[in-house]
Amino acid sequence: MIGGCAPIDAGGSGGGGSDGGARGDGGGSTGVNPLDNPKGTERGLGVIKSAKDLAEAIKIIEKVPTKGRGPKTGYDRDEFGYAWADNAEEIPLAHNGCDTRNDILARDGEKLKYRSGSNCVLVSMTLDDPYTSKTIEWTKQDASEVQIDHVMPLSYDWQMGASRWSRSKRVQIANDPLNLMPVDGSANSSKGDSGPATWLPPAKGIRCSYVVRFAQVALKYDLPVTAPDKDAMLTQCR
C-alpha cells in the first residue's frame, strides 16, 4: 500500500533462522543466518556455525566468478539513483511509501519509535550491530552513528560491470535489502569500497556470514569478484 509503510515484521525481538543467539566472539545477535535469508528481508546477519551450513557457504562462494577490477572512471553515487529512493523495481520493500534507509533500519532495529504522525520515519531504535557486536542505542539526532552499508559497495559494483548496466538495474542493487546492512557508522566508514581481501567486519564471528552475503549479492546480479577477494571469502568459511 502506497500511503505509508507499517513497521516491518522482522521476526520479533528474538533471533531467526538456525543461528540466532550468541555470536562466537561475544554479544547477542538477533540476526538471521544468511543461508536462511536469501532475499535479505529478515533481520540482520546471524552467525553461520554448523558444519553443514559452513559447507553450504563454501558452495555458494565457489559459484562466484572472478575477474580483475575495471577502472573507476565515470563512477558517481548518482549513477545508482537518488539515495534511498523507494522506486526501485522488482526488489522487496520498494514502492511501500517509505524510503529505503528507514525500511532497512526498521528491518533490523528493535524498540522502534517513529516520528509523530509517521509510519516511516524512525527517531530512535536499538540495533545489535553484527559488524562490531555493539548494541547501539540510536537516535535520529545522531543519525550518522548508524550507517547503511552496501555489503557489495557501489563503486566495487561499478568496476566489476555495473558501469555497463541500465540505470534501473543500478537503482535495484543500491536499494536491494539483500545488499544493505545497518551498522556502526565508524566501521562502515573504514570499509570504503573495499572487497573482502582488504576489509572484513571487526567481529570475527560474523565474517563467514558477511562474505556469504557478499556472494549472494554477486550471484543475484551476475557480478564477479576479484580473485583475492574470492580467496578471502573462502578462507572465512573454512
Rank of each mutant, 00 (worst) to 15 (best):
C5F: 07
G11H: 02
G20A: 12
A22E: 13
G26M: 10
G28N: 09
S29A: 04
P34V: 08
P34W: 06
P34Q: 13
L35K: 05
G46T: 01
K49T: 07
K52Y: 02
L54T: 02
L54A: 06
I60E: 09
K63R: 01
K63H: 00
G68C: 15
P71E: 14
G81E: 07
E90V: 07
P92R: 12
N96R: 10
G97N: 05
D99V: 08
R101K: 15
L105K: 03
D108F: 06
D108K: 15
K113L: 10
N119P: 03
V121H: 10
M125V: 01
M125R: 15
Y131G: 14
T132Q: 05
S133T: 04
T135Q: 08
W138N: 15
A143T: 00
A143H: 02
E145S: 13
E145I: 02
V151P: 08
M152L: 11
P153E: 09
W158S: 05
M160I: 01
R164H: 02
S168C: 01
S168Y: 00
Q172W: 02
P177A: 11
L178V: 00
N179H: 00
S186D: 05
D193N: 13
W199R: 15
A203E: 07
K204R: 11
V212P: 03
F214Q: 05
Y221I: 06
A227L: 06
D229L: 12
K230H: 11
D231V: 15
A232V: 10
